[in-house]
């Protein structure tokens, strides 16, 4: 299932939190060799994790992290505007209608079938959330090889630009938030729109939280 959790509330989900930051270390440091920092406890944490971002996290049946993404408003400090202006033609992506989405991660502990399901659930729940909150687009940093995965899931970003070469290519892209994209992803993944709505309602409604618990 999907959780929507602000950084300030991560302490209420210690297992999810720790496995998320560890999985991110494996994905971004070990596998992709990005210039990220892994701390003494093996957690990959950067500056943007300290700005009270909103995480969308998939919880596996054993209670650990299956995958996650991290959102920040582009009117505040973002990774794209701090580090990727050379890739975006110098345009600071700044708008109340655009959220930044970074650190798209699927747990390296997930098998191929689970990984596909997790990736689909993350994109669907991100799109559902963006639409519910009146956003039009999401801007993100991703490994260029992810493009074909996004395409297969049914939600391809518009590429703004890339830097680096080969395995170390990092790109910035825009995802348009639309009902069409959401329905297409639901259809392809077999996750119903109703499920996406339930995840959203449980994540952002206090009463629903009590009800679920």
């Amino acid at each position: 299932m999907i959780h929507y959790i602000y950084a300030e509330d991560l302490h209420k989900f210690p297992v999810l939190r720790d496995t998320m930051f560890k999985d991110r270390a494996v994905q971004f440091k070990t596998r992709l060799n990005w210039e990220v920092t892994v701390n003494a406890t093996g957690h990959e944490i950067d500056l943007y994790d300290t700005l009270n971002p909103l995480y969308v996290i998939y919880e596996l049946e054993d209670g650990t992290h299956g995958g996650s993404v991290r959102f920040l408003p582009t009117t505040g400090q973002t990774m794209v505007n701090d580090h990727f202006l050379d890739v975006t033609d110098g345009v600071r992506i700044e708008s109340p209608l655009i959220w930044e989405c970074t650190r798209f991660c699927v747990s390296p502990r997930a098998d191929a079938e689970t990984a596909r399901k997790v990736a689909a659930a993350l994109l669907i729940s991100s799109c559902e959330m963006g639409l519910q909150f009146g956003a039009t687009d999401s801007v993100g940093v991703f490994d260029a090889r992810m493009v074909r995965i996004y395409r297969r899931l049914g939600w391809e970003p518009t590429l703004l630009g890339s830097k680096g070469e080969g395995r170390e290519t990092t790109s910035v892209g825009l995802w348009e938030l639309s009902e069409e994209a959401l329905d297409r992803m639901c259809q392809r993944s077999g996750i119903s729109r109703q499920t996406a709505k339930e995840w959203f309602n449980r994540g952002f409604s206090h009463d629903a939280h009590i009800y679920a618990a």
């Binding site: 009117t75 345009v91 600071r92 700044e94 708008s95 655009i98 801007v139 518009t158």
Partner: peptide, 16 residues
């Protein structure tokens, strides 16, 4: 550039 990018640049310019 793509129309999508044009729309977003108009949005960021409007915000600024």
């Amino acid at each position: 550039i793509s129309e999508h990018t044009v729309r977003v640049y108009l949005d960021t310019a409007r915000t600024k």
